[in-house]
């Protein structure tokens, strides 16, 4: 196992180097001049030039790149011009917000999609199967910002059940002392129940929005993979041996059908982390996605590079975790490694 992890990590190094070079060049190739943007509406040509020198953007590309690599080796990702903060600190603060939301969204999605997929597979062609098809199609075809706005309109504006969509906490709460950066966990560590409830309330609507969006791939994959497993020989033998249908489906069939579902989960998770930009915008969520997009609009290089790099590292880590999970679920995978 240790060998496998080491090998995978070594394999990731070239791709990370590639990501660093490509994002550096891409951000430089963007149209737009950060110096002109940050010089303000009243800037003269000289003022723009002054800012360009201050930002080091007057240097040739290769000099800028060497400086960037030098800073990077010290863990310095540069400073964002739009928020005025060091990028590393921003990402450290914002990543937990996005991760908490995405994980909860994924949980919501799994809680609905997996049972739905299993039920649809055990009774193909039935009403529940059609319901599964409709729900997944609807989920994937409604844009996230639309689902989010509808949920806010109904549950906040009309019914008043949900709290104001003002980000992670109501204005009268202060965040818990940071341990994990996940407010749900940190508030429990701090033993502050009211805070836990408050942050959970803020999370429900955005997590539901993300959940609805990611239902489709998980439910479809569960259904397809369950269908294949249920028609295989060992399930037939299990049924013939008189095992209860619950044991057959959940203990035997589902465990074998899980592999492709886990792969899908990994994909969905990484894709959600990047794609929840719109949800973050709608719910004023201080996450990493909205940070990157705002930076991109202002041609603010440092955060964009930092964001892409963080995402690349997360993809590598996620793939590694999925590979390890494979080994735990399916002993055959361990041998192959």
């Amino acid at each position: 196992m240790g060998n496998l992890i080491l090998k995978r990590l070594l394999l990731a190094v070239p791709s990370l180097i590639g990501v660093v070079i490509v994002t550096f060049l891409l951000t430089r190739a963007l149209p737009g001049d950060p110096a002109a943007y940050f010089a303000g509406p009243a800037a003269t040509a000289e003022a723009v030039e002054e800012i360009r020198v201050k930002l080091g953007l007057d240097q040739p590309l290769i000099v800028q790149f060497v400086r960037y690599i030098g800073d990077l080796s010290h863990g310095d990702l540069g400073s964002s011009l739009t928020t005025g903060q060091p990028v590393a600190a921003e990402i450290k603060r914002r990543l937990p917000a996005s991760a908490e939301l995405t994980l909860l969204g994924l949980l919501v999605s799994m809680a609905i999609a997996v049972p739905l997929g299993i039920l649809a597979a055990t009774q193909p062609g039935s009403l529940i199967d059609h319901a599964c098809r409709v729900v997944t199609t609807a989920g994937v075809s409604l844009p996230v910002f639309f689902t989010g706005l509808i949920l806010i309109y109904v549950f906040y504006y009309k019914l008043g059940w949900a709290p104001a969509p003002l980000g992670r906490l109501d204005i009268f709460f202060s965040p818990p002392p940071q341990v994990t950066g996940f407010y749900l966990i940190d508030s429990l560590i701090a033993g502050n129940g009211a805070l836990f409830v408050a942050s959970l309330k803020q999370l429900i609507l955005p997590a539901l929005t993300l959940g609805i969006f990611s239902l489709a791939p998980i439910a479809r994959m569960t259904r397809a993979s369950m269908l294949a497993v249920l028609s295989s020989d060992f399930v037939r033998s299990a049924r013939a041996s008189g095992l209860s249908s619950f044991t057959v489906v959940v203990t035997y069939a589902f465990r074998n059908a899980m592999l492709p579902v886990i792969t899908t989960l990994g994909m969905v998770f990484s894709f959600l982390l990047g794609a929840n930009v719109l949800v973050e915008k709608v719910f004023a969520w201080p996450g990493i996605g909205s940070f990157a997009v705002e930076a991109l609009i202002a041609s603010d290089f440092a955060p964009v590079q930092g964001f892409v790099l963080t995402m690349a590292i997360m993809y590598v880590a996620l793939n590694l975790i999925i590979d390890i999970l494979y080994g735990l679920i399916d002993p055959r995978m361990r041998l192959e490694a």
């Binding site: 706005l149 806010i152 906040y156 504006y157 969509p165 003002l166 204005i171 004023a284």
Partner: peptide, 11 residues
């Protein structure tokens, strides 16, 4: 508070 969506600010 920064609320990017105009619809939400109105709500």
């Amino acid at each position: 508070r920064i609320v990017p969506s105009a619809g939400n600010r109105r709500a």
